[in-house]
Computed example of a mutant assay.
Amino acid sequence: MTISMDALDEKLITLLRHDGRRSISDIAIDLDVSRATVRARIERLEKAGIIIGYTVILRADTVEAPVRGIMLIEVEGHASDRVVKALSGFPEVLEIHTTNGRWDLIVELSATSLPELDAILRRIRLISGITSSETNLLLNTPRSTRARL
């Protein structure tokens, strides 16, 4: 089901992203609408698959793997699907993004130490189809709306 979102839906989602545990009454007050309107909007957004769940968001630097990095990867020819499949088998890989420009993939990694991150990078660089890479350490995450599971 595809639905169009209006300004009220966008404000509602913003409020929920900042505090998914807020009461419907509090949200209704902030949005200047009735509780029934908020409840109906949330149910509609959930049914449409726009809101797929609620979770706890942790500060990224408090999780078990305090060393995190972004690896930029260049892939030869049409090997992207194969490389993505191989990367998906690494538990240290948090996210994989395809992109355009100089790099074909952007991969977010986690590790418990710098030597562990180094070992992960060496294993990833051995994947057939990867022609070049560059890695940057993430030093701090002052704001994140993504959950760390």
Rank of each mutant, 00 (worst) to 15 (best):
I106S: 02
L12E: 04
T55K: 12
E95L: 14
E43R: 11
G69P: 01
S128N: 10
I13P: 02
R39F: 13
M1H: 04
L117I: 01
L16F: 04
R59L: 13
P142D: 13
T37V: 13
L139S: 09
S80Q: 14
L94E: 14
V83P: 00
I52A: 14
I52N: 14
G69W: 06
I51T: 03
R123M: 05
L16Q: 04
G77W: 06
A60L: 08
P66K: 15
S132T: 12
M1S: 15
L149M: 13
L105R: 09
I120R: 02
M5W: 01
D118C: 00
I130E: 06
A28K: 07
G101T: 05
P115E: 02
R59Q: 07
L126T: 07
G49D: 05
S4M: 03
P66G: 08
I52V: 15
Y54C: 08
L12F: 06
T99F: 07
V107E: 08
M5C: 07
L8Q: 03
D104H: 15
P66E: 10
G129F: 09
V63N: 02
T145R: 11
S88F: 02
E76Y: 11
L138G: 07
A147S: 13
E92H: 10
P66D: 14
A40H: 08
I24N: 12
S23Y: 08
L149S: 10
A60E: 13
S4N: 06
I130Q: 00
T2L: 11
R123S: 14
T98N: 06
V33N: 09
M71Q: 11
L126F: 10
L126K: 14
I106N: 07
I3Y: 06
R22Q: 12
L137F: 06
I96D: 02
R122Y: 12
H18G: 14
H97W: 06
L15Y: 14
R102T: 12
V63G: 09
T55M: 10
R39Y: 08
A36I: 11
I27M: 08
V33F: 10
D81I: 03
N100Y: 15
T112G: 14
S80F: 09
D118Y: 09
L139W: 08
